[in-house]
């Protein structure tokens, strides 16, 4: 197992390189002088020239890439001009909040989605299946930012069950119950789309598995139908559900950008949007590379989970 994890870690290195190259190339597409773009159009020529020198922007592309990569590997992602603090510090602070939000949503979408998919498959064409199928269709069609706004309107403004926005109360203790009450609406709004997708694919995977011979064997043994569905069929279906979960993690992370905007959540997505609007290029660059790298790491965890589940995968 340790060998397998090591192997997956090593295979992630070229992917990380690829990501850094892609981000670098995209940022090199910035029209005009990058230093002007970074400092804004009111910057003095001396400052522009200094920044160009500091960033090595007067050097050829390949050299610039190597310098940039070298700095990043040493933990130097540059300095955000709009916040006037190191990019990495800001990204790390913000990423924690995103992780709380996206992580909760991911767990919700996995649990709810798989449960809905299994029930839907087990009761195929019954009323539960029809209700779930309809809810899933609605869930995957509604824009998460619109859903979030409607949830604020209903549950925060009308019913006053939850706070309207933010991660912490402005006054008062920053404890777990405060976090949960602030987290509930955004986490649900973010989970809905992914839950729909997971439910849909879980249903399909379960239907596929339920026709397999080993399900008949389990029934012939006299195993209770509940176990046939939740133990035998689900375990086998998980082999095709887990990769979907890996993909959905990316979608949850993506959707978090919208939800953070709607709920004023102090996460990395909102930071990126603000940075783009303020043309804080280094902050965008650093944020994108950091989050993408974390996502690659998450996918390694998914692969390892898959190999733990399926003994036929050679570890």
């Amino acid at each position: 197992m340790a060998g397998y994890i090591l192997k997956r870690l090593i295979s992630a290195i070229p992917v990380l390189f690829g990501i850094s190259i892609i981000v670098f190339v995209i940022m090199a597409m910035i029209p005009g002088d990058p230093a002007t773009a970074i400092l804004g159009s009111y910057a003095t020529p001396e400052n522009v020239e200094k920044l160009n020198r500091d960033l090595g922007l007067d050097k050829p592309m390949v050299r610039r890439y190597v310098i940039w990569l070298g700095n990043m590997l040493q933990g130097d992602f540059g300095r955000s001009f709009s916040l006037n603090r190191p990019v990495l510090d800001e990204v790390m602070d913000r990423f924690g909040a995103t992780l709380v939000l996206a992580g909760t949503s991911f767990i919700l979408c996995a649990l709810l989605g798989i449960a809905a998919g299994v029930v839907s498959a087990a009761r195929q064409y019954g009323w539960a299946d029809k209700a779930i199928t309809f809810a899933v269709l609605l869930g995957i069609s509604i824009p998460s930012f619109f859903l979030g706004m409607m949830m604020i309107l209903i549950f925060a403004v009308q019913l006053r069950w939850f706070p309207v926005s933010g991660m912490w109360p402005i006054y008062g203790a920053r404890d777990l119950s405060a976090l949960i009450s602030h987290l509930t609406l955004p986490a649900l709004a973010l989970a809905v789309v992914a839950t729909g997708v997971v439910a849909r694919l879980s249903r399909a995977a379960m239907l596929e598995v339920l026709r397999q011979d080993f399900i008949r064997t389990a029934r012939a043994k006299g195993v209770h139908e509940r176990s046939v569905i939740w133990r035998h069929a689900l375990r086998a279906a998980m082999v095709s559900i887990i990769p979907v979960l890996g993909v959905q993690a990316g979608f949850v992370l993506s959707g978090a950008v919208y939800i953070e905007m709607v709920f004023q959540w102090p996460g990395v997505g909102r930071m990126l949007v603000d940075a783009i609007l303020k043309r804080d290029i280094l902050l965008v660059q650093g944020g994108v590379v950091f989050v993408a790298a974390c996502y690659v790491g998450f996918n390694i965890i998914v692969d390892v989970a898959q190999s733990l589940l399926d003994p036929r995968i050679k570890t």
């Binding site: 990501i19 979608f251 993506s254 940075a275 965008v284 989050v291 993408a292 996502y295 690659v296």
Partner: peptide
């Protein structure tokens, strides 16, 4: 390997 929005944000940036 990118969550799609990161790529889109980078391009828009």
């Amino acid at each position: 390997a990118f969550p799609y929005i990161l790529l889109a944000l980078a391009i828009v940036a």
